[in-house]
Amino acid sequence: MSDLPAMSSEPILRTRGLTKRFGGLVAVNDVSLDLHVGEVHVVIGPNGAGKSTLTNLLSGDLPPTAGEVMFEGRDIAGCTSDHISRLGIGRSYQKTNIFLPFTVFENCRLAAQSRTPHALKVFRRVEGYAEINRLAYEAMESAGLSHRSARVAATLSHGEQRQLEIAMCLATQPRVLLLDEPLAGMGPHESQRMVELIKQLTADHAIMLIEHDMDAVFALAHRLTVMVNGEVLESGTPEQVRSSPAVQLAYLGGEELLHD
């Protein structure tokens, strides 16, 4: 995992000087980072470091106070979240955010439906769209939820709900994936599954992953950014970050990373 693939390739998503202030609090301060297709860019940092706020700025859930977000060469800072989603940037939420009363299939079908321009055709039966159904089934398959297709989402286990969260994101066919702590609250077996899934997705997606599980972080990261108090403390390959004295001192307490 140490060699950065194709450093020369243009980043699909890049931020420069990205800043978000809530009144006097600077939640995200002057953050610049690049996402490349074929790479997992992991962002770590203690609670309150601004990781989720950063995700919200990229997905359009929050408008940035300053700075730019370039997606395929155009500035999308301040665009609405539905617009950004349609451009091809999908996200999952740290707190599970699904349609609880709907079946797993309907959750994924709705997600896939968002890609169709004829969504406003009001007289055609919803079942008649083969392409949308196919996308929904594929997304369930990828996330390992096919056997739960007919279950109501509210009755799934916590881990399965996390999988559904990812499946819905996949059904929208994004090229950039923003995954906010996808492993949170998962058992070891489920975590392993998710890590495998993210590895598979890396080939044709640019992925930003926020994660606390250090095993997963080092299994997946091509590039690692450490955030503290809204600022980037260190960014580079996992080796560079691992050996950075600043990181060891400020965030990792000189322990966790040195172990392996």
């Binding site: 539905d82 955010n97 609880l100 709907f102 968002s114 819905m168």
Partner: peptide
Amino acid sequence: LGIKVNEHRMRALGF
């Protein structure tokens, strides 16, 4: 119906 259940998620899905 999706908007009724979870408006925020519908927006994030691109609706």
